[in-house]
Amino acid sequence: MTALMIINMRNILSVIMLGGIYSLISAILFVVLDAVDVAFTEAAVGAGISTVLFLSAFAITGKHHDLKRRNHFPALLAVLVMGAGLMYSTLDMPAWGDAEAPVHQHVAPRYLEDSYAEVGVPNIVTSVLASYRGFDTLGEVTVVFTALIAVLLLLGAIREDEDQS
């Protein structure tokens, strides 16, 4: 629903605020789907930080309007074709919430059964994140660090510091 409203909004400020609300709603959805860690992160990151960053970038540019469009048809066609294809492919997917689905057969049972004895941490998400998949998390922290370097280079904050010293 919020996503549909975002499509129609032309004022960029309200688009940004609706983006924040949309994140909060999806966080609630994650709680319903039992992913408490993910919901926590989405609420803090999506609804909090990313809205603040959007607003601060918006304050720099200060452009308030989205222009009127020429022709909606090609975009609409592309989106509908993609949507139809994806819908068709979901027909092959296992039923939602099915405990016998292939997703739950591979490594997940091992994490659920053995992780407490092996790692001794009740929160399985934490133990998988930091222990079994430590390399993933290392790569991910590196991505965040690289993003910082990219932002600082683009905005020229590195040069500015050198000028001061």
Partner: peptide, 14 residues
């Protein structure tokens, strides 16, 4: 629930 997607998505959000 399966913890593996949660871990992957946690990383993806950040």
């Amino acid at each position: 629930s399966n913890p593996l997607p949660h871990v992957l998505i946690l990383t993806a959000i950040v």
